[in-house]
């Protein structure tokens, strides 16, 4: 329960940051990506601010043996730059450019109740679900192949 409350607070602060930063205005985001047109560079400062604050403060947090409410830290361990990473990022970028929404601002924009935000988030969640189904099938096929003979083991990278 305490863990959920802390996570909820983090979600609130995160979305307030997105709003203050201008990330919740799709036109602003597309303006940032429009390098050859009327470029709006402000969003580079969002990343700068976020990385500056998080990059330093996370070091203090990681001096602890464990987080406050959980027995251990769950940090990403994957390091490989592989085809899956690059292809997925490429697809994501296309959708981001088309709409001006990435996942955080999309969830935050649900609060507006506009048809645009609802439509986008429904489709985004469907895309996430679709990928989970593809992965399950692949895992099942992999298990079948492993049962009938030696097969290359494919580890699934942990979320960044």
């Amino acid at each position: 329960m305490k863990a959920a409350v802390a996570s909820g607070v983090a979600g609130v602060v995160f979305s307030l940051g997105l709003g203050l930063a201008g990330m919740t205005d799709p036109a602003n985001v597309q303006g940032f990506l429009d390098f050859t047109g009327d470029w709006r560079p402000a969003l580079a400062f969002v990343m700068g601010g976020a990385i500056g604050v998080h990059g330093l403060s996370r070091l203090l947090v990681l001096r602890r043996r464990a987080p406050v409410l959980e027995p251990a830290f769950s940090l990403p361990t994957a390091a490989a730059v592989d085809a899956r990473l690059l292809a997925g990022s490429a697809l994501f970028g296309m959708g981001w450019g088309l709409s001006g929404y990435c996942p955080g601002p999309a969830f935050t924009s649900l609060a507006t109740g506009t048809v645009d935000a609802l439509t986008f988030v429904a489709a985004m969640v469907a895309g996430m679900w679709l990928f989970a189904q593809v992965e399950k099938r692949r895992a099942a096929a992999g298990a079948k192949a492993a049962a009938s003979g030696p097969a290359p083991v494919q580890g699934e990278p942990v979320d960044a």
Binding site: G88, P103, G127, F131
Partner: peptide
């Protein structure tokens, strides 16, 4: 356009973790 973009964002971000 929104549905297409949403599917790309959802699928792509999961694929890229």
């Amino acid at each position: 356009l929104l549905v297409g973009a949403g599917l790309l964002v959802g699928y792509g971000t999961r694929m890229a973790n």
